[in-house]
């Protein structure tokens, strides 16, 4: 017991000194569990995040848009793989993690349980959802767990274009015909609030914030990240120009921040608990893709076995 307390003290001292923790280093079981939870949810989010956008690949309005969207969705598959690999360094198998997702026992970002109703939604997702994800991921490049931080560096490098392709789509629509403009505004109206919820519950209600910040897994709280995002997104919306769907939104000259109206946290919890519009559809699509890929996995294995003989 005393031994573990001493190890934990040394572990925390290393973290406080800015050192990175690597897979074979001693770590408290709670640190390992929290990281498996975070990294696997992040990985699942990348994989499920392909589905709302994949919906529009065949209907992209031009070849240029189609190429960009295809590359973005392919990146998301790659990012899911980086993250599963990072989770595996903590002693879980990818097989278990995938099985959890397919069973409906794993969480992923609730934002992907909203539907993509029109092409403008692809613009809104790139601009807002990827824009929000990049802020969170930029913070995580300094995470105390080495493999997670390294995966984030890779992801951030690649994701810069995701946000820009989304903003370009929004700008083209916002400056197009009245009908195109209406589509862009409608997409912003539907994606704005769910995007603000992506950063997680308010600090006062977040069970993980303090612990994760103490371990330097995170360096900013949910509310700090959310504020960072709002301050960047409001001027971007004004430049399009589109209206942020928040009548209470105001500039606070004293703090130098944009202040939003209240967020509907009941909706957040309802979607987290499975009551979103697309929760069931996403899992069904994932399970179908997994089943339909079975013959490929089996054929590759049979081929490898034959060659090994």
């Amino acid at each position: 017991m005393a031994d573990d307390a001493e190890r934990e003290r040394r572990f925390q001292a290393r973290i406080d000194a800015g050192e990175r923790i690597e897979p074979k280093d001693w770590m408290p079981e709670s640190y390992r569990r929290q990281l498996v939870r975070m990294i696997s949810q992040h990985a699942h989010s990348e994989i499920v995040g392909q589905l709302p956008e994949g919906n529009w690949i065949t209907r992209a309005p031009s070849l240029r848009r189609k190429l960009g969207l295809l590359a973005k969705v392919q990146d998301e598959a790659g990012h899911g793989l980086y993250l599963y690999a990072a989770a595996e360094t903590l002693g879980v198998s990818r097989e278990e993690l995938c099985a959890e997702l397919l069973r409906g026992a794993a969480k992923y970002s609730s934002i992907f349980n909203y539907p993509t109703l029109c092409w403008a939604d692809i613009g809104a997702i790139g601009w807002l959802v990827d824009g929000a994800a990049i802020l969170n991921q930029t913070m995580l490049t300094r995470c105390s767990y080495g493999p997670y931080a390294r995966a984030m560096v890779r992801i951030c490098k690649e994701e810069r274009f995701h946000e820009r392709q989304g903003y370009e789509i929004m700008r083209a629509l916002a400056q197009g015909t009245p009908a195109q403009r209406a589509l862009a505004q409608d997409a912003l109206d539907r994606w704005w609030w769910p995007t603000l919820m992506m950063f997680g519950p308010p600090d006062a209600a977040s069970e993980h914030n303090t612990v994760l910040m103490g371990w330097r897994v995170k360096q900013k709280s949910n509310d700090e990240l959310r504020q960072w995002f709002v301050d960047l997104a409001v001027p971007q919306a004004q430049a399009l120009p589109l209206a942020i769907p928040d009548p209470a939104l105001r500039w606070d000259a004293e703090t130098g921040h944009w202040v939003t109206g209240p967020i509907d946290w009941d909706e957040f919890w309802r979607v987290v608990r499975g009551g979103g519009i697309c929760n069931r559809e996403r899992l069904r699509a994932r399970a179908k893709a997994h089943d339909e890929g079975r013959w490929v996995r089996e054929a590759a294995e049979a081929w490898a076995g034959k060659r090994a003989r």
Binding site: L81, A85, R94, R150, R154, W303, A304
Partner: peptide, 12 residues
């Protein structure tokens, strides 16, 4: 070192 992948053999 960049990361890891799963595969049945070296070619894949």
């Amino acid at each position: 070192h960049a990361g890891s992948v799963h595969a049945p053999d070296a070619a894949l």
